[in-house]
């Protein structure tokens, strides 16, 4: 290998050494988000499998639980698909949230995070960039989910196009906000298997001990208590209100505020974890 004079190295002899004065945080986030997005969206295998998951969830749950629509606790005049789709939307966004953490762990393992950390950039950029990429993928998945619900499953949201779009936005925002919990976990635990287990343990009760698949009133008494304090219940309520009525009033505001608050607290914790000595 021949290396033409003075092109690879640095030090005093490099012609334009030191001409790059570092990048701004906005550029860092943008460049890193694009990087993650490329892996998430441009790899057809990863893209298709991630789009298929919510579709399958809708297919399976709409068949298994359809009978619940005939029980007395079920709200009158609402079809089960109309009831289920908002829950699947929130669940899809939560899956994306979990994926953010798992994807990040894998990168911690293969050393790319260490490389990025050795650069003169704000470590938070690495996390924010990834969370934005995952948010965009989450939106993509939600759009595909809604399209198939409308075209194949006979989803007829009374809230109209505006309500559905607002519902998509809210679900994605919820997933993005709560996703920071998984990012923070990743930054502190740093082990793929552990993260997967902990994420699963967290996600499972959040989804099932809620009003996602059956109305709260149809749950056993003790589970009702859990479901009422479960933030998912309120998020799903808000998305349901948006898609069913086109307006969610206070519940949407509470959901947005909660998601943002979680993002700030967990985000701060995550950056601390990433900067932590190991």
């Amino acid at each position: 290998m021949t290396i033409a004079g003075g092109t690879i190295g640095g030090g005093p002899r490099a012609a334009d050494a030191g001409t790059w004065e570092g990048s701004g945080v906005a550029t860092q986030i943008w460049v890193l988000a694009l990087r993650s997005l490329r892996a998430l969206v441009l790899d057809p295998r990863i893209l298709v499998s991630s789009l298929l998951a919510p579709f399958l969830m809708l297919l399976v749950f709409s068949q298994i639980f359809a009978g619940i629509a005939n029980t007395p606790q079920f709200p009158a005049g609402v079809g089960y698909t109309d009831f289920l789709v908002p829950a699947i939307m929130v669940n899809t966004a939560m899956q994306s949230a979990m994926q953010t953490g798992i994807g990040l762990t894998q990168e911690t393992q293969n050393g790319i995070i260490a490389r990025l950390r050795s650069l003169p950039i704000w470590p938070g950029s690495i996390l924010v960039g990834r969370s934005i990429a995952e948010l965009i993928r989450s939106l993509l998945r939600l759009v595909v989910l809604l399209a198939s619900a409308l075209l194949i499953f006979g989803f007829r949201p009374a809230g109209g196009a505006g309500g559905v779009l607002a519902g998509i936005g809210l679900a994605a925002l919820l997933g993005w906000g709560l996703g920071w919990i998984f990012i923070a976990l990743t930054c502190w635990l740093r082990e793929v298997e552990l993260i997967q287990n902990v994420s699963g343990i967290l996600l499972f009760p959040l989804m099932f001990a809620s009003n996602a698949f059956v109305p709260v009133e149809a749950l056993p008494r003790w589970l009702q208590v859990v479901a009422v304090i479960n933030p998912m219940t309120h998020g799903i309520d808000a998305v349901r209100d948006l898609t069913h009525r086109g307006d969610a009033g206070g519940s949407a505001a509470v959901a947005v505020a909660t998601a943002l608050a979680v993002a700030v607290v967990a985000g701060f914790t995550a950056v601390k974890g990433l900067e932590r000595d190991s």
Partner: peptide, 18 residues
């Protein structure tokens, strides 16, 4: 970054350096 081309790996670092 295994998901990026060799070239894009280097461009990424350069962009982050400003």
């Amino acid at each position: 970054d295994e998901q990026l081309s060799g070239r894009d790996n280097l461009i990424l670092i350069a962009r982050l350096l400003g």
